[in-house]
Amino acid sequence: MLLISCPNCGSRDETEFHYGGQAHVPYPENPNDMNDREWAEFLFYRDNTKGTFAERWLHSTGCRQWFNMLRDTVTYDIQAVYPMGTPRPDVSVPAAAESGTASTAADSTTTGSAAPSTSATSISATSTASSTTAPEGATK
């Protein structure tokens, strides 16, 4: 069971979430100009990374908001949680070692004192501060 740190609600069991597959797949800019090969790529081809993978998750039983996550597909370690619309953070340095307890993740299960007050409809693209590291033992 993954323990996932929702940027709005704090860390919750995986059962509260839905998986959304690869993140940062833009809708084609000029759909009318695309050939069959390009359509196939857009519709059916997604990265299947072994290692750190940027993916989307939905906190379906909680705040019902989408967010992005960097997760290692081999160890299942969650390396970062960051808002939709922001670029993939650089976590070449192991996240846990670098940030220690200074995680900005809404803590534990409760009042989430540090939860960023991002609006659901307009998450500012500059709010890199809400890119969060996962708490210890985020995966089992």
Binding site: Y19, F53, T73
Partner: peptide, 8 residues
């Protein structure tokens, strides 16, 4: 299957 991608 489990919902997420995984090589574990």
């Amino acid at each position: 299957v489990d919902s997420y991608n995984g090589y574990g």
